[in-house]
């Protein structure tokens, strides 16, 4: 009774969180991308799991990603409090205590890895454990606050889910899994640096050494263009492997042309023009980057359908593929 009164009176910060606050700790928007890419990796693999095993694999990969999100929120609560974009997260807003976020993150990490092992295989579980470690320790605790290359290297954590999905089904890593990893890995820098261009003040306030803070916006625009150019051969090369095909190739051609043009426009844009229209072009490029990744993985998924396989046979696509 007395504890209820204390909480109602606002004397205690504990026990106030609703279920939604704990869900928010798991970064559901990031999880949705993880679910989608892991699902694609799992569904296009040449070995097919029982539907319930596949569902369990996707759920536990997503849960592992969510767990690393909770660990990230626990560690980054101090800088999240300073940044406008993250100030309403459960820990900085006071809805959930930092210790709870840590406990939830560690428990869900262990649960997701063990369950993925039981549902599929040890290699997939090991990759999931490494991904959680990489995101929570290598990226969050180390790289994020120490180098402007933070999101380049840290991007690997977000690139693992389709590979884990593939490995969950096949039990081994192949060129297709590596290409899906590289597609996200190379896409991450242009995506996040576009965000940093119009969120620079946030990172500056929090003293996070984003490229925009340490080297300025002009250098960031150049880096976006370079990484976009490097991304194109990875994206187009995937068309000529077992997971690619004519549909993927056609879509990748359009998306990569648009992305290259967008990156070139961003590179040429003077800072004064960007400030004048409140970074409208940068925001459009950021939105395009989301469509770019979704489009490529959707095309990979389409290529696994019987209709696309028939089209590839008709186009004699097999003669162009390797691996």
């Amino acid at each position: 009774m007395s504890d209820i009164r204390a909480e109602i009176a606002g004397e205690s910060g504990t026990g106030d969180a609703g279920f939604g606050d704990y869900v928010a700790l798991l970064k559901p928007r990031v999880m949705s991308l993880v679910v989608f890419t892991a699902m694609v990796g799992l569904m296009v693999a040449p070995v097919h799991l029982h539907p319930i095993e596949a569902l369990a694999a996707i759920i536990f990969i997503a849960l592992g990603a969510g767990a690393s999100g909770a660990l990230n929120m626990w560690w980054d609560a101090d800088i999240d409090r300073v940044m406008r974009r993250t100030a309403k997260r459960p820990v900085p807003s006071g809805a959930v205590e930092a210790g709870e976020a840590l406990g939830l993150g560690l428990s869900l990490s262990a649960l997701s890895v063990v369950m993925l092992w039981l549902a599929t295989n040890a290699l997939a579980a090991g990759l999931l454990a490494f991904t959680i470690f990489f995101y929570a320790v290598i990226y969050t605790m180390w790289l994020k606050r120490s180098t402007p290359q933070n999101i380049v290297i840290g991007g690997a954590a977000g690139a693992f889910p389709p590979m884990i999905g593939w490995v969950a089904a096949t039990g081994s890593i192949s060129i297709e899994a590596v290409l899906m990893f590289l597609l996200i890995f190379m896409w991450t820098p242009p995506h996040f640096w576009a965000l940093a261009l119009f969120m620079n003040s946030d990172y500056e306030k929090a003293k996070v050494p984003m490229l925009t803070v340490t080297h300025g916006r002009k250098a960031t625009r150049t880096h976006i263009l370079i990484y976009t150019i490097l991304l194109v051969p990875v994206a187009l090369g995937t068309a000529f492997t077992a997971i690619g095909g004519p549909v993927y190739f056609a879509l990748a051609l359009v998306l990569n042309a648009l992305f290259l043009i967008g990156a070139f426009r961003l590179w040429r844009r003077p800072e004064a023009a960007a400030e004048a229209d409140k970074y409208a072009v940068e925001k459009r490029f950021f939105a395009l980057s989301l469509a770019y990744l979704f489009g490529h993985f959707a095309a990979i998924l389409i290529e696994a359908t019987p209709w696309a396989e028939q089209l590839a046979t008709w186009a004699n696509w097999g003669a162009l593929t390797w691996g």
């Binding site: 939604g20 029982h50 539907p51 319930i52 369990a56």
Partner: peptide
């Protein structure tokens, strides 16, 4: 406060039920 607690308790209940159902389904599938 009671509404938040109710939402939390209901959420935990449903999550646990879903987990049990998933483990059961996995067992049957295996």
């Amino acid at each position: 406060l009671h509404r938040r607690r109710w939402s939390r308790n209901l959420g935990v209940l449903l999550t646990l039920l879903a987990f049990v159902a998933l483990v059961f389904g996995l067992t049957i599938a295996k």
